[in-house]
C-alpha cells in the first residue's frame, strides 16, 4: 500500500443524518396545518413574521421528533420499519440527538415568543413536552390507547398558528385541534390493520395486538362516528362556510362508508382481498384531512373577495 488515508473506524454523521432526526415527513403535515391555522384567522400577520412563526413551529416539531428518537432508540432498533433511523443504525449518537432536540426546542420556543406572542410559544412548548414526555416516555409503552391521547401532539399546530395571529384560543382553533385529534385514531388503526407490524416484539402495546383485530375494527367505526360532528361543526364557525361544509359532508360520508366497510369485515375477508378495503380507507383518511384544511383555506381566500363564509 503506497498511500495513507485517515482511519474510518468511527462514522461521522452527515447533515442529512441530523436532518432525518427531525422526522421531515411529519414536519410537512405540521407545516401545512399550522399554516392553515394562521391564514384562516381574522387577524392579518406580516408575511415575514408568519414565515418565522411557521419555521419555529416546524423546528419545534422536529425537536420533539429528535427527542422521541433519542428516547425510543431501543424500540426502533427492534422494529424493521424503524431500524434504519439515525440512532439505531449507529449514524448518530443518542447524546447528539438529545442535545439537538433540546437545543432546537429551546431556540424555537424563545424565537416564537419574541417574534409573535407568549401564548403561541407556550402552546409550542406544551406540544413538544406532550409528544416527548407524555406520549413517548409514558403512554407509548403503557397503553394501547397511546395514539389516541398522543394524537393531541399532532393536533396542536393549527391551534398554534391561530394563536400566532390572534394571541388567543377560540372555538375555531379548538375545533381544528379536535378535528386532527379525532381523525388520528381511525387513520392510524386503518394502517395498523394492514401493515404487518412488529410492535409486539418491541414491547409496544398496539390495539391490534392487545385487543385483537375485531376490537380495532370496532374502534375505527366508533372514532369515525365521533369525528363527523367535529368536522361538520367546524363548518358553522366563522372560518367555515358553504364550500367547506359541502367538502366536509362529502368527505365524511366517504370516510364513514369506509369505516363501516372495515367494521363489517373479518380476518378471512381481509386475507382474501389482501386488505384492499383497509388500504383504501387509509388513503381516504389522508385525503380527508387534506380536503378539510384545504377547504378552510379556500373559504379564507373566498372571504377576501367577499363571497366566502356565512
Amino acid at each position: 500500500m503506497s498511500d495513507i488515508s485517515a482511519s474510518d473506524s468511527t462514522y461521522e454523521a452527515s447533515m442529512g443524518d441530523y436532518f432525518a432526526l427531525l422526522k421531515p415527513r411529519v414536519m410537512s403535515l405540521v407545516v401545512f396545518t399550522a399554516l392553515v391555522g394562521l391564514l384562516v384567522s381574522p387577524v392579518p400577520v406580516h408575511p415575514f413574521i408568519g414565515f418565522v412563526a411557521i419555521l419555529c413551529i416546524a423546528v419545534g416539531a422536529g425537536a420533539s421528533g429528535a427527542l422521541n428518537m433519542w428516547w425510543d432508540a431501543d424500540i426502533d432498533a427492534r422494529m424493521k420499519r424503524t431500524a434504519g433511523r439515525p440512532i439505531p443504525s449507529g449514524r448518530v449518537e443518542p447524546g447528539e440527538a438529545l442535545g439537538i432536540g433540546l437545543a432546537l426546542a429551546g431556540f424555537s420556543i424563545v424565537l416564537l415568543a419574541l417574534a409573535t406572542n407568549f401564548l403561541a410559544a407556550f402552546l409550542l412548548a406544551f406540544t413538544i413536552f406532550f409528544y416527548a414526555v407524555i406520549y413517548s416516555m409514558w403512554l407509548k409503552r403503557a397503553t394501547p390507547q397511546n395514539i389516541v391521547i398522543g394524537g393531541a401532539a399532532g393536533a396542536f399546530p393549527p391551534m398554534i398558528g391561530w394563536a400566532v395571529a390572534t394571541g388567543s384560543v377560540s372555538i375555531e382553533s379548538v375545533l381544528m385541534f379536535a378535528l386532527i385529534f379525532m381523525w388520528t385514531p381511525p387513520h392510524f388503526w386503518a394502517l395498523a390493520l394492514f401493515v404487518k407490524s412488529d410492535y409486539g416484539n418491541a414491547g409496544v402495546p398496539m390495539l391490534t395486538e392487545t385487543h385483537g383485530r375485531d376490537a380495532t375494527r370496532k374502534h375505527v367505526i366508533i372514532y369515525t362516528l365521533l369525528l363527523v360532528p367535529v368536522a361538520l361543526g367546524l363548518g358553522f364557525t366563522s372560518i367555515g362556510g358553504p364550500f367547506y361544509l359541502a367538502v366536509a359532508i362529502f368527505m365524511n360520508a366517504w370516510f364513514l362508508k369506509g369505516a363501516f366497510d372495515i367494521w363489517r369485515r373479518d380476518d378471512a375477508a381481509c386475507e382474501a382481498d389482501k386488505h384492499r378495503v383497509e388500504i383504501k380507507v387509509f388513503k381516504v383518511s389522508l385525503y380527508y384531512l387534506f380536503a378539510h384544511f384545504g377547504a378552510l383555506l379556500v373559504e379564507a381566500a373566498l372571504r377576501l373577495y367577499g363571497v366566502g363564509g356565512w
Partner: peptide, 21 residues
C-alpha cells in the same frame, strides 16, 4: 509514498460545516 490528504470523511465534514454555516 504518496500522502492522500482528501478522504471521504473530509467530504462529509465539509458538508456538515457548510450546512452549519
Amino acid at each position: 509514498m504518496a500522502m492522500r490528504v482528501e478522504h471521504e470523511l473530509h467530504e462529509r465534514r465539509k458538508g456538515r460545516n457548510y450546512g452549519l454555516g
